[in-house]
Write a protein that binds this DNA or RNA. Structure first.
Length: 227
DNA sequence: GTGTGATCATCT
DNA sequence: AGATGATCACAC
């Protein structure tokens, strides 16, 4: 594909989205930033979301801070995944906020993590160099395999059960083999409402669902296997 | 070196 | 305010 491509517009379907992403493979984030007219951050440690937002813009995702997939019409969620030169994920992957009150569904099938993870465009970003020098890796569309979904469901149900039992404050990131619950807030003084063990209300730190590195590592490996 | 818990910027 | 995008930093 020629460089630079036309300025990104929302993709019409999965195939168009995938073609668009494949056209970015091998490009540096610096090239993408220049193409899109965005300056690389002067202080990268203070710009944790820069890479993800750059990829959203590069693929024509409408800017939004609403729950639900990035490409709502397609039902596709975009996730950038920082990996080292061996292709090993460098960090866990944020999935979505976890409402700790009774809005958190008891069933996996109606849960927010399932809605987000049912269809994901994974975009590896390769390397540990300064941000502008890292390269877009080989992206791929993913849907959980049956055994992967079983794992996610089991973790979700375990967490949901604890939340509904009023144990939200006692859930640590150690719970869950693939999906875990971690703090998700501007600081640890933030509070949200949760149900307590007696069915009343108490406060707790806001949390979000995350995918463990071991899980994303495994799914990167499995895409090269026959099913 | 890893994983958990804490934190930062931006947008609506 | 509270969501989005994640990485930082310290304890282990």
């Amino acid at each position: 594909m020629s460089w630079p491509p036309p300025f990104p517009t929302p993709p019409a379907d999965e195939a168009a989205l995938l073609r668009c992403a494949e056209g970015l493979t091998g490009r540096t984030l610096g090239e993408l930033a220049q193409w899109l007219g965005r300056a690389p951050p002067a202080r990268p440690e203070r710009a944790k979301g820069w890479m993800g937002q750059l990829m959203e813009a590069a693929l024509g995702a409408p800017p939004s801070n609403e729950a639900g997939p990035d490409f709502a019409a397609l039902g596709v969620e975009l996730k950038t995944l920082p990996v080292d030169l061996q292709g090993v994920p460098r960090a866990s992957t944020f999935v979505c906020q976890a409402p700790l009150d009774l809005r958190l569904s008891a069933s996996w099938s109606e849960s927010r993590p399932k809605a987000k993870l049912s269809r994901v465009l994974w975009v590896p970003v390769v390397g540990e160099a300064p941000l502008p020098e890292r390269r877009v890796g080989a992206c791929f569309l993913w849907r959980p395999a049956p055994d992967e979904e079983d794992l996610l469901r089991a973790d979700y149900e375990e967490i949901a059960e604890l939340v509904h039992a009023g144990q939200a404050n006692r859930i640590s990131a150690r719970v869950g083999r693939a999906l875990q619950l971690r703090p998700k807030a501007a600081d640890n003084q933030r509070e949200t409402w949760v149900v307590d063990a007696a069915g009343g209300w108490m406060t707790a730190q806001p949390r979000g669902f995350y995918l463990r590195r071991s899980f994303t590592h495994a799914l990167l490996g499995r895409r090269f296997l026959l099913t």
